[in-house]
């Protein structure tokens, strides 16, 4: 009897040892990866009509896009399929597992200058593809021609009770703002898609005895959403830490410059324009070098 029990126990332990590790359950038709959006699929294009539907209607129907090109002529929606669920067999009292992402799919909507739908394509990307391939599928490649819709100045006017406080605050805020931007990895650096061009401080003494300080930060990015977020960061960096010392009298004055390179140079002045051109050239060289390496 004892021998029989020993044999059964040994066989059971051997069997459990054999199946320790991963059990992969493929789930080809179960659905999407858990954090993927659920309101877009292969049938979505049927809800829109080429030549009729506008960008506004697509956004109102599907919500925020996952990508928008700088000229806003391409917007994309993506979702990740669920490839499998992995269960790690319990060893002692522990166990685990989780979902495995499968192929990514993108719906790429293209619009004409008037914002009317020109085409809608379904693209499929392997989970093993590079970031570059994924970006290409979503049409994220930097534009050949830099559009100035992705350049924005964030202006802030803050009034202070005295000139001395204004000067001290301006210096402190400038340092804080620079630190905030560096912390976000937003410094001028070729190869990145966002950076600051210039920060300027203008002091104006008002008749009422208040000193008005104007901060102006200029951004340029391939992605307009990045610029929008950075202007938000500047507003936060400048206005929040110094509450009480100064009074922000205009925190939402954003100016968007749009046009060709030449128009940018004219609009932004010689110094800022020259910096932008220098960056464009170095960025272009970086891209060229990348292409040659391929």
């Amino acid at each position: 009897m004892k021998t029989k029990t020993l044999v059964i126990t040994t066989l059971l332990i051997a069997a459990l040892s054999a199946i320790q590790g991963c059990v992969v359950i493929p789930t080809p038709k179960v659905g999407n990866y858990p954090d993927s959006r659920e309101n877009v699929d292969e049938h979505t294009p049927g809800r829109f009509r080429v030549g009729v539907t506008t960008r506004e209607e697509v956004l109102l129907t599907l919500g925020e896009a996952d990508y928008i090109s700088p000229d806003e002529e391409v917007i994309s929606y993506g979702w990740n399929k669920l490839a499998a669920v992995v269960f790690l067999m319990p060893v002692g009292w522990t166990g685990g597992g989780g979902p495995v992402p499968g192929r990514s799919r993108f719906l790429v909507f293209s619009f004409d200058k008037a914002g009317v739908l020109r085409s809608c394509q379904l693209r499929d990307v392997s989970p093993f593809s590079s970031t570059q391939d994924r970006n290409a599928a979503m049409a994220v490649a930097p534009p050949a021609e830099y559009r100035l819709s992705s350049v924005r100045t964030a202006n802030l006017k803050v009034s202070y009770r005295s000139n001395e406080v204004a000067v001290a605050s301006a210096q402190t805020l400038r340092r804080e703002m620079d630190a905030e931007l560096r912390a976000g990895g937003l410094e001028l650096r070729p190869g990145t898609n966002a950076f600051t061009i210039q920060t300027t401080l203008l002091r104006v003494r008002t008749d009422s005895g208040w000193t008005s300080v104007e901060y102006s930060v200029l951004f340029r990015a391939h992605d307009q959403q990045v610029v929008a977020r950075m202007t938000g960061r500047v507003h936060g960096a400048v206005s929040e830490p110094k509450k009480g010392l100064g009074k922000v009298i205009d925190r939402l004055t954003d100016q968007i410059v749009e046009g060709t390179r030449e128009e940018l140079l004219r609009a932004l002045g010689r110094r800022a324009g020259a910096e932008i051109m220098a960056f464009m050239q170095s960025d272009g060289q970086t891209q060229e070098a990348g292409k040659k390496r391929k």
Binding site: P34, D35, S36, R37, D66, Y67, S76, G78, W79, N80, S104, T131, R134, N135, M138, V140, G184, G185, L186, T192, N193, A194, D223, Q225, V226, R229
Partner: peptide, 12 residues
Amino acid sequence: EHQCRAPHLSWG
């Protein structure tokens, strides 16, 4: 910012 630079399909 990471999500802004490289589109990331996370709506979790």
